[in-house]
Design a protein around this nucleic acid. Structure first.
Length: 255
DNA sequence: ATGGCTTGAGTGTCAAGA
């Protein structure tokens, strides 16, 4: 089973890329972030025509998440339960016995800002909820745009990013807090090349110079980590015309 | 030099992303 995550930075603009990528990769599950679409205009018909079922949780202009699946989705949950938040950042569903949680983590803008405080609160709420979710669902996968580079090796220029947003101590501690729930970073289960990133700034030719960060992740509970046979970033869609600034991250789970 | 692109909203140009 192939599971993946991709921040598409507007599904309206990126739908052709998404459909092409699904056809190429034959992914079973794709979690999307930054769809930026209200539910009433979500392109469900086009996605279903491609052979996928879909659940979504969106809003106008900002945020918005979705889970696309070749298999049936059940027990869909939208937003973090008991956490009051108008921003549409979370959707979860059970697929083939796997609890799939799709998250678009807050950016945080700048360390010390109001948005940074919101990011840390949000991370705490997510972690508290996932502690319960992990107990209820031994097979759990957390996929999404975490907006956290977990370690210096996930950053093209660690010195320049030292202590900055996406790399600060508190954000990395929150990432470690998710790992403490038993969730493993699928990418780091395997030997990987150096300087693999999942996001590159549109400006300054960031992609061509590989000036990026690894901030999109797939975290797996212990039984799923045992089943995981590979995890990679697919840079191909980032090379297309009008790409998202993020590339998809893909993991393979043995049956 | 805190810029640089891209998107959405909306028709000026700004907010937000990371």
């Amino acid at each position: 089973m192939k599971i993946a995550t991709w921040n598409v930075n507007s599904l309206k603009v990126r739908l052709p890329h998404v459909l092409d990528w699904l056809a190429t990769q034959q992914a079973d599950i794709l979690c999307l972030q930054e769809t930026k679409l209200e539910d009433k205009v979500f392109p469900a018909a086009e996605i279903e025509a491609a052979g996928y079922r879909v659940a979504f949780n969106g809003q106008k202009t900002y945020n918005g998440v979705a889970i696309l699946s070749r298999h049936e989705l059940s027990d869909v949950v939208r937003d973090i339960p008991a956490y009051d938040d108008p921003q549409k950042r979370v959707i979860a569903a059970t697929i083939n016995g796997v609890r799939v949680v799709c998250g678009y983590f807050p950016n945080g803008q700048e360390v010390g800002s109001d948005k940074y405080a919101y990011k840390l609160k949000w991370l705490e709420a997510l972690t508290n909820w996932l502690r319960i979710e992990c107990a209820n669902y031994p097979q759990l996968a957390l996929l999404g745009d975490f907006n956290i580079a977990p370690e210096d090796r996930d950053v093209h220029d660690p010195a320049a990013w030292q202590g900055k947003i996406l790399c600060s101590e508190s954000e990395r501690a929150a990432f470690a807090g998710l790992q403490k729930l038993g969730l493993a970073d699928a990418f780091r289960l395997f030997e990987q090349p150096e300087k693999v990133f999942s996001w590159w700034d549109y400006r300054m030719m960031g992609f061509r110079r590989n000036q990026g960060l690894r901030i999109d992740h797939i975290l797996l509970s212990p039984p799923l980590a045992l089943r995981c046979s590979s995890c990679l970033v697919d840079k191909a869609p980032r090379k297309l015309e009008r790409p998202s600034d993020h590339a998809p991250v893909l993991a393979e789970l043995a049956p």
